[in-house]
């Protein structure tokens, strides 16, 4: 039996990789992927806790997160395409019209 702390460690590591990726990468698509990685860290956390606490709530929550993440990706990619059409780039360093 794998103890809960291992799952939580995995979840935390995944989440931290996501945070680092989001903060260091400069491509919009990779940043979007990093957010998904963070969400998957949360999902592992919730499912593991749900199993050990014998409560269904965590698993239900996970389903909602997966669903919302899909909707979020649809909108995010839509915005990325609109951005590419107007600027010919999805690199955040080039997004510097708005500053001050």
């Amino acid at each position: 039996m794998i103890p809960l702390s291992w799952y939580m460690a995995l979840a935390t590591i995944l989440f931290c990789i996501g945070v680092c990726g989001f903060l260091t990468r400069r491509n919009v698509i990779v940043m979007l992927l990093s957010i998904e990685l963070m969400l998957n860290g949360v999902n592992i956390n919730l499912v593991a806790m749900s199993y050990f606490l014998e409560s269904m709530r965590g698993q239900v929550f996970t389903f909602f997160i997966i669903t919302v993440a899909a909707a979020e990706a649809a909108i995010g990619l839509g915005i990325a395409i609109a951005l590419y059409r107007s600027r010919r780039t999805v690199h955040v360093d080039n997004l510097n019209q708005l500053k001050g």
């Binding site: 989440f15 996501g18 989001f22 919009v28 940043m31 979007l32 957010i35 963070m38 969400l39 860290g41 949360v42 956390n45 997160i65 979020e72 909108i75 995010g76 915005i79 990325a80 609109a82 951005l83 059409r85 107007s86 600027r87 955040v92 997004l95 019209q97 708005l98």
Partner: peptide, 22 residues
């Protein structure tokens, strides 16, 4: 300017949601 604003808002909003969820 709008698509730049939208992508910035989207990325920051998604990041904040992930923090909140953790």
């Amino acid at each position: 300017r709008t698509s730049e604003a939208a992508i910035k808002y989207f990325l920051m909003g998604g990041f904040a949601s992930a923090l909140l969820l953790f």
